[in-house]
Design a protein around this nucleic acid. Structure first.
Lengths: 243, 243
DNA sequence: GAGTGGTCTAGACCACTAG
DNA sequence: TAGTGGTCTAGACCACTCC
């Protein structure tokens, strides 16, 4: 277990990290499951426990794994509370965040246009899935969003499956399709509401809305979802942490 | 160097981290300066080098320290390129980010109102400083913002000092006043432009703008700045990373 | 060559969880 | 009580920077 040379030098623990990442990508351990213990991994890869620890440390730092003292190390999942707040950054101006009601407006099969194909790194014309939905907080419609998915990865996804699923979309994706969203990049703009969106969100046309475009990635920075949301920020705001 | 008991258990490296934080707060090492070597710190605190390393690891992870192999460990500073991008999250839709021209519109001494006092954790009526400025990107006014500071921390700050300073405000704060902004929380909303803001940003009244409210903290989560910005997002967007 | 941070090991012991 | 992750140590050696 050594493979180093001057120009391509990569420390042992980083090679171990890559091996663990390979296993995660391959679905060897599914979201929520425990991975082997540090000692077992150290034996398997013929390195010291400390080296395995450092590899796991990095993966835990990237929120791919979760350590639980006395129990083991687990593949991170979107079932956990905190994770949801990491991906839905909208908070009420007053009071505690609550889980929204999700209303599916539309679900259909489509073909990827040039722009979507570029973003999702698939071919123009490849199958795609599109859904539109409304997030309603305490009776108040706050988010209108459109979600685009590569059809090949989410074969069999249906309006019924989405409607019947309790919990976040990302939870459905990882439990039913083995695809875990690991991180995302968002681009925010302020825009004026078009007529249909204004109607759905209960505001006047051209009312200022927060437009959020999101590209989500799974293991290995592979893009697997694109969405565009319109947020009504009259009584909510988008949280951002700088540091 | 041991102080542990069951309920208040804190590992050694975390105690070391607190000691290092104390030194940072006290200004023992100023932004940009090197801190003592790991071996020296290990000797000073009578722990192993590995324990010091772990303490420094965490501080580096929080962007308070920067490690440079072969040279030493340095107190992080707002002079560095990357840091600026961490705090100014506005990017042009097309092309590379560029440094904006900063036009100071207004600078004055004031008193903290109840709301500002609460946010900055000072007393209502305490001295405060307020400045308004415009950030202009390639001739295009894009950001209009108002910055509120506790007067006691930034005694002697003047319009001239701000105008003559090249570089970010945070750079001025840390070099002239020894106060380094370590992290910040932002709340974003979409709002319609009021008449004076619209005028300054070159848009029609009620044009949709991105409102960014920021509370900035120095070491120890002490709030030391509040700002409200209006971003024209016609050709720019706000970047956000979720993970 | 000397000094700094970075990696790796082996071993001891602590804290937490579960049967 | 056994198994897991968490801490701490001491020592060897590597990679990088500067003189």
């Amino acid at each position: 277990m050594l493979a180093m040379s001057s120009p391509t030098f990569s420390p042992l623990y980083r090679q171990i990290k890559e091996l663990l990442l390979d296993s995660l990508r391959a679905g060897e351990w599914r979201p929520g499951e425990a991975i082997p213990s540090e000692i077992e991994l150290a034996t398997r890869y013929r390195v010291s426990q400390g080296t395995v620890r450092k590899a796991i440390d990095e993966l835990a730092g990237e929120n791919l794994l979760v350590r639980r003292q006395g129990k083991g190390t687990f593949v991170a999942t979107h079932g956990e509370r905190q994770v949801r707040f990491r991906f839905l950054r909208l908070s009420p101006d007053a009071g505690e965040p609550v889980a929204p009601e999700r209303r599916l407006l539309d679900f259909r099969r489509a073909r990827a246009g040039a722009e979507l194909a570029r973003l999702l790194e698939i071919k123009s014309g490849d199958p795609a899935l599109v859904l539109r939905r409304l997030l309603v907080f305490g009776g108040d419609p706050v988010v209108l969003e459109e979600v685009w998915l590569p059809g090949n990865l989410f074969k069999g996804l249906s309006a019924v499956a989405i409607t019947e699923h309790k919990g976040a979309l990302y939870n459905l994706f990882e439990t039913q399709f083995g695809t875990r969203m690991v991180r995302a990049e968002e681009k925010l703009k302020a825009v004026g509401a078009d007529a249909p969106s204004a109607e759905l969100l209960g505001v006047a046309p051209s009312h200022a809305l927060l437009q959020v475009e999101r590209l989500s990635f799974t293991y290995g920075d592979k893009p697997v979802e694109w969405r565009r949301g319109l947020y009504k920020t009259d009584r909510h705001h988008y949280r951002s942490e700088l540091g």
